[in-house]
Amino acid sequence: MRASLKSFTPLILFLGLVVLLAFGLKTDPRKVPSPLVGKPAPRFSLPALQDPNRTVSNADLAGKLSLVNVWASWCVSCRAEHAELMRLSREEEDLQILGLNWKDDVVAATRMLRVYGDPYRVSAFDPDNQVGIHWGVYGAPETFVVDFEGTIRYKHIGPIDRTVWEQDLLPLIQAIRKTTNGHE
Protein backbone atom coordinates (compact mmCIF):
# COMPACT_ATOMS: atom_id res chain seq x y z
CA MET A 1 0.00 0.00 0.00
CA ARG A 2 2.78 2.36 1.01
CA ALA A 3 4.80 1.46 -2.06
CA SER A 4 1.89 1.98 -4.44
CA LEU A 5 1.17 5.38 -2.94
CA LYS A 6 4.82 6.25 -3.35
CA SER A 7 4.81 5.26 -6.99
CA PHE A 8 1.91 7.64 -7.58
CA THR A 9 3.80 10.59 -6.07
CA PRO A 10 5.31 11.83 -9.37
CA LEU A 11 1.89 11.65 -11.02
CA ILE A 12 0.30 13.60 -8.18
CA LEU A 13 3.06 16.22 -8.33
CA PHE A 14 2.66 16.44 -12.08
CA LEU A 15 -1.10 16.91 -11.84
CA GLY A 16 -0.56 19.61 -9.22
CA LEU A 17 1.78 21.37 -11.62
CA VAL A 18 -0.79 21.03 -14.44
CA VAL A 19 -3.46 22.63 -12.25
CA LEU A 20 -1.10 25.45 -11.29
CA LEU A 21 -0.10 26.14 -14.89
CA ALA A 22 -3.70 25.88 -16.14
CA PHE A 23 -4.65 28.46 -13.56
CA GLY A 24 -1.82 30.67 -14.79
CA LEU A 25 -2.95 30.28 -18.38
CA LYS A 26 -6.56 31.11 -17.58
CA THR A 27 -5.68 34.27 -15.68
CA ASP A 28 -5.45 37.24 -18.00
CA PRO A 29 -2.31 39.22 -17.14
CA ARG A 30 -3.83 42.27 -18.78
CA LYS A 31 -6.42 42.45 -16.04
CA VAL A 32 -4.59 44.21 -13.28
CA PRO A 33 -6.59 44.21 -10.03
CA SER A 34 -7.38 47.69 -8.79
CA PRO A 35 -6.18 48.76 -5.34
CA LEU A 36 -9.10 51.22 -5.29
CA VAL A 37 -11.71 48.54 -4.65
CA GLY A 38 -13.12 49.06 -1.15
CA LYS A 39 -11.91 52.67 -1.04
CA PRO A 40 -13.88 55.87 -1.56
CA ALA A 41 -14.03 57.02 -5.17
CA PRO A 42 -11.15 59.44 -5.88
CA ARG A 43 -12.11 63.09 -5.87
CA PHE A 44 -12.77 64.48 -9.30
CA SER A 45 -14.32 67.45 -11.00
CA LEU A 46 -14.61 67.75 -14.76
CA PRO A 47 -16.78 69.54 -17.30
CA ALA A 48 -19.60 67.52 -18.82
CA LEU A 49 -18.98 66.30 -22.35
CA GLN A 50 -22.17 67.74 -23.85
CA ASP A 51 -22.32 70.86 -21.66
CA PRO A 52 -18.99 72.43 -20.67
CA ASN A 53 -20.74 74.69 -18.17
CA ARG A 54 -21.97 71.76 -16.11
CA THR A 55 -19.50 70.17 -13.70
CA VAL A 56 -19.41 66.44 -13.06
CA SER A 57 -17.95 65.56 -9.69
CA ASN A 58 -18.28 63.27 -6.66
CA ALA A 59 -21.54 65.09 -5.92
CA ASP A 60 -23.04 63.18 -8.84
CA LEU A 61 -22.18 59.91 -7.12
CA ALA A 62 -23.58 60.89 -3.70
CA GLY A 63 -26.49 58.79 -2.49
CA LYS A 64 -26.72 56.85 -5.73
CA LEU A 65 -25.77 53.44 -6.98
CA SER A 66 -23.58 54.03 -10.01
CA LEU A 67 -21.64 52.40 -12.76
CA VAL A 68 -18.78 54.66 -13.74
CA ASN A 69 -17.96 53.63 -17.28
CA VAL A 70 -14.71 54.73 -18.94
CA TRP A 71 -15.27 55.06 -22.67
CA ALA A 72 -14.04 56.72 -25.83
CA SER A 73 -15.24 57.00 -29.40
CA TRP A 74 -11.98 55.50 -30.68
CA CYS A 75 -12.44 52.42 -28.54
CA VAL A 76 -13.88 49.47 -30.45
CA SER A 77 -14.77 47.45 -27.34
CA CYS A 78 -16.74 50.44 -26.03
CA ARG A 79 -18.86 50.28 -29.13
CA ALA A 80 -19.31 46.56 -28.47
CA GLU A 81 -20.63 47.10 -24.95
CA HIS A 82 -22.71 50.12 -25.91
CA ALA A 83 -25.93 48.17 -26.56
CA GLU A 84 -25.70 46.47 -23.16
CA LEU A 85 -25.22 49.85 -21.46
CA MET A 86 -28.27 51.15 -23.31
CA ARG A 87 -30.28 48.20 -22.05
CA LEU A 88 -29.09 48.75 -18.47
CA SER A 89 -29.95 52.45 -18.62
CA ARG A 90 -33.49 51.50 -19.68
CA GLU A 91 -34.10 48.56 -17.38
CA GLU A 92 -32.19 49.22 -14.15
CA GLU A 93 -33.96 52.23 -12.76
CA ASP A 94 -32.05 52.75 -9.52
CA LEU A 95 -28.69 52.34 -11.25
CA GLN A 96 -27.18 55.40 -12.87
CA ILE A 97 -24.44 55.11 -15.46
CA LEU A 98 -21.90 57.90 -15.36
CA GLY A 99 -19.56 58.18 -18.32
CA LEU A 100 -15.91 59.10 -18.10
CA ASN A 101 -15.07 60.08 -21.64
CA TRP A 102 -11.36 59.31 -21.69
CA LYS A 103 -8.65 60.74 -23.97
CA ASP A 104 -11.22 61.52 -26.60
CA ASP A 105 -12.21 64.27 -28.96
CA VAL A 106 -15.33 66.24 -28.08
CA VAL A 107 -16.76 66.18 -31.62
CA ALA A 108 -16.24 62.46 -32.17
CA ALA A 109 -17.52 61.60 -28.70
CA THR A 110 -20.73 63.63 -28.93
CA ARG A 111 -21.34 62.28 -32.41
CA MET A 112 -21.07 58.72 -31.15
CA LEU A 113 -23.69 59.38 -28.47
CA ARG A 114 -25.95 61.16 -30.96
CA VAL A 115 -25.75 58.35 -33.50
CA TYR A 116 -25.85 55.29 -31.25
CA GLY A 117 -27.74 56.66 -28.26
CA ASP A 118 -26.62 57.96 -24.88
CA PRO A 119 -26.78 55.51 -21.98
CA TYR A 120 -25.15 57.96 -19.55
CA ARG A 121 -26.86 60.22 -17.10
CA VAL A 122 -23.91 62.47 -17.78
CA SER A 123 -20.43 61.99 -19.22
CA ALA A 124 -17.40 63.73 -17.74
CA PHE A 125 -14.94 64.90 -20.35
CA ASP A 126 -11.34 63.95 -19.62
CA PRO A 127 -9.29 64.40 -22.81
CA ASP A 128 -5.93 64.69 -21.02
CA ASN A 129 -6.28 61.78 -18.61
CA GLN A 130 -6.31 64.07 -15.58
CA VAL A 131 -8.95 62.17 -13.68
CA GLY A 132 -8.23 58.84 -15.37
CA ILE A 133 -4.85 58.58 -13.61
CA HIS A 134 -6.47 59.13 -10.22
CA TRP A 135 -8.97 56.36 -10.93
CA GLY A 136 -6.16 54.05 -12.06
CA VAL A 137 -7.58 53.84 -15.57
CA TYR A 138 -5.22 52.19 -18.04
CA GLY A 139 -7.52 51.42 -20.92
CA ALA A 140 -11.07 51.60 -22.16
CA PRO A 141 -13.57 50.28 -21.46
CA GLU A 142 -13.34 49.97 -17.71
CA THR A 143 -16.32 50.04 -15.37
CA PHE A 144 -16.41 50.82 -11.66
CA VAL A 145 -19.31 49.89 -9.41
CA VAL A 146 -19.76 52.70 -6.88
CA ASP A 147 -22.22 52.15 -4.03
CA PHE A 148 -24.58 54.60 -2.28
CA GLU A 149 -21.82 55.72 0.06
CA GLY A 150 -19.50 56.57 -2.81
CA THR A 151 -17.23 53.56 -2.23
CA ILE A 152 -15.78 51.68 -5.19
CA ARG A 153 -16.97 48.10 -4.83
CA TYR A 154 -15.70 46.51 -8.01
CA LYS A 155 -13.77 47.25 -11.17
CA HIS A 156 -14.50 45.46 -14.39
CA ILE A 157 -11.85 45.65 -17.11
CA GLY A 158 -13.05 45.17 -20.67
CA PRO A 159 -16.48 45.36 -22.24
CA ILE A 160 -19.67 44.49 -20.39
CA ASP A 161 -21.97 42.02 -22.08
CA ARG A 162 -24.97 40.08 -20.85
CA THR A 163 -22.77 37.36 -19.31
CA VAL A 164 -20.53 39.81 -17.47
CA TRP A 165 -23.57 41.66 -16.22
CA GLU A 166 -25.35 38.56 -14.98
CA GLN A 167 -22.35 36.78 -13.51
CA ASP A 168 -20.11 39.53 -12.18
CA LEU A 169 -22.05 42.75 -11.76
CA LEU A 170 -25.65 41.85 -10.97
CA PRO A 171 -24.95 39.67 -7.88
CA LEU A 172 -22.86 42.47 -6.35
CA ILE A 173 -25.42 45.13 -7.24
CA GLN A 174 -28.20 43.04 -5.70
CA ALA A 175 -26.13 42.61 -2.56
CA ILE A 176 -25.60 46.38 -2.37
CA ARG A 177 -29.31 46.99 -2.84
CA LYS A 178 -30.14 44.53 -0.11
CA THR A 179 -27.79 45.98 2.52
CA THR A 180 -28.90 49.50 1.74
CA ASN A 181 -32.58 48.61 2.05
CA GLY A 182 -31.78 46.91 5.36
CA HIS A 183 -30.26 50.11 6.71
CA GLU A 184 -33.24 52.20 5.74
Binding site: V32, P33, P35, L36, H134, W135, G136
Partner: peptide, 8 residues
Amino acid sequence: LVARYGDF
Protein backbone atom coordinates in the same frame (compact mmCIF):
# COMPACT_ATOMS: atom_id res chain seq x y z
CA LEU B 1 1.10 55.33 -8.50
CA VAL B 2 0.81 52.19 -6.35
CA ALA B 3 -2.30 53.62 -4.65
CA ARG B 4 -3.94 53.92 -8.07
CA TYR B 5 -2.53 51.12 -10.17
CA GLY B 6 -1.41 48.63 -7.54
CA ASP B 7 1.93 46.89 -7.02
CA PHE B 8 1.79 45.94 -10.66
